[in-house]
């Protein structure tokens, strides 16, 4: 039973990449649909709508980041990989903020992005404000990323 630690740790890393990735894929997809609609009317807005489309894409990268830090910490990328069940569960838990917040914030941010794209379609000069609405949602993904990073790095120095 003691060998199951690594299983949970790896599952956590994979969920972080998986859920955040799915969320970002959904989000960027939604943004892309809206952006493409704008481009049919006015191709000159490409740069602006592209930025708005990309905003929900960051969660996927954060998820990748967490997965990578975890993988290198637990020794999957070379090194020792024996750990107790408790430590494995700790890693699992540490990955969860990024996994869940990453997923939901990407989808919700995409909806804000789609609305912002509609703003840019009508009033391109309001791009700055439109962008902020979408960026607001990302705050929570960043906070989740922060906690996940701190937790994963911290677990390494625990005495369990």
């Amino acid at each position: 039973m003691d060998n199951y630690g690594i299983v949970f740790a790896l599952a956590g890393a994979i969920l972080a990449a998986l859920l955040s990735g799915i969320g970002s894929a959904k989000g960027v997809g939604m943004g892309g649909e809206a952006a493409a609609g704008v481009i049919t009317e006015d191709p000159s807005k490409f740069g602006k709508v592209l930025i708005l489309q990309l905003l929900p894409g960051t969660q996927g990268i954060y998820g990748l980041l967490i997965a990578f830090i975890t993988l290198s910490q637990i020794g999957v990328l070379g090194g020792k990989s024996d750990m107790s069940l408790a430590v494995g569960l700790l890693y699992f838990g540490a990955c969860m903020p990024m996994a869940f917040v990453g997923y939901y914030s990407a989808v919700k941010q995409a909806r804000a992005s789609v609305a912002s794209i509609a703003v840019v379609a009508k009033k391109p000069d309001q791009f700055g404000k439109a962008m902020i609405f979408s960026a607001m949602v990302e705050t929570y993904a960043i906070l989740a990323l922060l906690i996940s990073v701190l937790a994963i790095v911290g677990i390494g120095s625990l005495n369990i």
Binding site: I61, Y62, L64, L65, F68, T139, I142, L146, V149
Partner: peptide, 20 residues
């Protein structure tokens, strides 16, 4: 003030992805 933690998070993101 907590919102400025994004300075760390985004800085880390750049660095860690570089490492990857």
């Amino acid at each position: 003030v907590l919102s400025y933690s994004r300075l760390l998070a985004l800085g880390l993101a750049t660095g860690v992805i570089c490492t990857v």
